[in-house]
Computed example of a mutant assay.
Amino acid sequence: MLRALLPACVLVLSITCHAESVTPSAPALFNADGYRISLYRSPTPDQAAGATVIGTQQLQSLLDQPRKPLLIDVYRRQWLQGRFIEDEPHANLPGSHWLANTGDGELSAQWMDYFTRHLRRLSDGHLDQPTVFYCRADCWLSWNAVKRAKALGYSEVYWYRDGLDAWQAAGLPVSPAQPETLQ
């Protein structure tokens, strides 16, 4: 009886081993430049190179300073046929500028220009302008935007890691938001 089952066991083992060897690998998480390119909504690190990670209390302290920081929201918004499509209302921290879609790991020339141009305009070209990037909790988009701003030479960069979720959890006000125009 055992001898009769042996060929079937070998066949099952062979199929199982073969199936594991052809299973596709997980998608790459980072590109060659170190930007996160997939699974944007997943746990984020405790730090971002060259940036100061802040919580809600630290952000409120910065907002009370005479030289107020720029608040940059990088939450995604669908872009279709040359315009942003509002699939659901979005709110952000009062006084924020929404540079939608600029936290993606790989930006086309058009989106990189959008990011660069608006940062330059909002900071009056001052690379030392305090700038806070945020999105939502467990969102790599703001981490990417911090990395990108540092690469552009911005020196006083803050990452509000838990972003809009932490702000709302603290019971602080939000404002209806519209992305900055692409033009």
Rank of each mutant, 00 (worst) to 15 (best):
L107K: 08
L6S: 14
V74P: 01
C9Y: 11
Y75D: 13
L6E: 12
Y35G: 07
P89R: 11
H18D: 03
T52M: 03
D113A: 11
S21F: 09
T116K: 04
N31E: 05
Q81L: 10
E106V: 13
Q58T: 08
L119C: 09
E88M: 08
L5F: 15
G82M: 06
M112H: 13
V10M: 12
L119R: 07
E88K: 13
L13W: 05
I54S: 10
W111V: 09
L29K: 08
H97R: 06
V12E: 01
E86L: 11
H118Y: 03
Q78W: 08
G34D: 05
N31I: 08
W111M: 07
D33W: 00
R76Y: 13
H118C: 01
Q65R: 14
K68R: 15
E86N: 14
T16D: 03
A51L: 02
H90D: 11
V10G: 03
L119E: 09
Q78R: 11
C9T: 13
W98C: 03
A8K: 11
L107A: 12
T44E: 01
H18Y: 15
S96G: 11
I15L: 14
A51W: 01
H18F: 15
L5T: 15
G82Q: 06
L62E: 13
A109S: 09
D113P: 05
R67G: 06
Y75M: 14
I37E: 09
E86R: 14
S38P: 10
R41T: 05
L13T: 10
R3A: 14
P66K: 06
C9K: 03
R36P: 05
A32N: 04
T16G: 06
I37M: 10
Q57Y: 03
R77K: 08
T116F: 00
Q110I: 06
P24A: 10
D64Q: 15
P89G: 03
S108D: 12
P66C: 05
R3S: 14
L29G: 12
L6A: 15
L63I: 08
I72M: 08
T116I: 01
A109W: 00
L11K: 02
A8V: 14
L29Y: 06
P7S: 08
I54G: 11
S108P: 04
D73C: 02
A8I: 15
W111N: 07
V10C: 13
T52K: 07
N101T: 07
Y75A: 14
L99I: 09
L63K: 06
A28V: 03
R36E: 03
S38Q: 10
V74F: 01
Q110N: 02
Q47K: 07
V12I: 15
P45V: 03
G34L: 02
Q47P: 01
A26N: 11
L29N: 06
Y75P: 02
P66W: 00
G105L: 08
